[in-house]
Design a protein around this nucleic acid. Sequence first.
DNA 1: AAAAATCGGACCTGGCTGGTCCTCTTTCTG
DNA 2: CAGAAAGAGGACCAGCCAGGTCCGATTTTT
Lengths: 156, 156
Amino acid sequence: MLRISKLTDYGVVLASHLATLDGPRSVRELAEDTAVPQPTAAKVLKALAKGGLVTSTRGARGGYALSAAPADISIAQVITALEGPIAVTECTDETTDDGCSHEEHCGVRGNWQRINGAVQTALEAISLADMAHRAGGALITLSLSAADANARLRSH
Amino acid sequence: MLRISKLTDYGVVLASHLATLDGPRSVRELAEDTAVPQPTAAKVLKALAKGGLVTSTRGARGGYALSAAPADISIAQVITALEGPIAVTECTDETTDDGCSHEEHCGVRGNWQRINGAVQTALEAISLADMAHRAGGALITLSLSAADANARLRSH
DNA sequence: AAAAATCGGACCTGGCTGGTCCTCTTTCTG
DNA sequence: CAGAAAGAGGACCAGCCAGGTCCGATTTTT
């Protein structure tokens, strides 16, 4: 299903919500606004803080706020902060260089990496500002190759 | 990590391997060629057969073969056959119309669907024939919009 | 000093993934 | 016609991890 985890989904929702605010907000407030269970929201926000996407202010009147402008934070960053590097298959995970035993059999590998890169590029191109605005217009289009992209352009 | 399951990975490897062959092959042979554990390969191939991607011949000298030309079977079909409909988040799974409780809070939803659609389109555009050829050249590129695609074309 | 927050963990638990096995049916071959 | 070869269709299990909760320590405000 090519699914991302629910935690990550929460992360995107929370981060997008933060993008509509200015000052820091407490976990309780954010959880209420987004209807995410409070302890879970806390966990997610902690992870985002560790990833440097949000800054935390401790103590009374503290809370979380985005560490950068909404337009400068990508969905890919949120996903990476919560799930580690984006890798569609284990093969494409560069960190484990254990030399996949199928390597000689699967000429498939290079292609997976390309697919993976494509997905990653797509997610990097989408900012929290984009997500915060509903009705963003035509957000993403895909093309198989430059030539194909060209053909599409002409057809419009 | 936006990861697909290992079973699905096997499915792609097996299907891509079948794309390089002509007649039906037994599970044992396919498993040996691809270094996928035999019982697991059987399971995967059964699922592919149920999805109509491969045809099975029973009895002695039977086996599996692709049900269509490699160029006419997409990676998306393989994934769908093994994992059900592609849905990045639960929200984007159209089958469950239980009205996600966050709905009013998350203007995010429409955007997820667009991302989801983009990924799906990308996977639909990649055929087994593409996967079977290693070194396929620039297989996929992404663009945010037609305008952006245009800009990219010019920059090359 | 007390209250309000986050931090950094530990902890549990249910479901799902990956993997195996067994029996039934079908088909070919000798 | 008998037996072997092969898939169909399940049941089944073990391990892992996502999802979720909770607690004590620390920091800051009031």
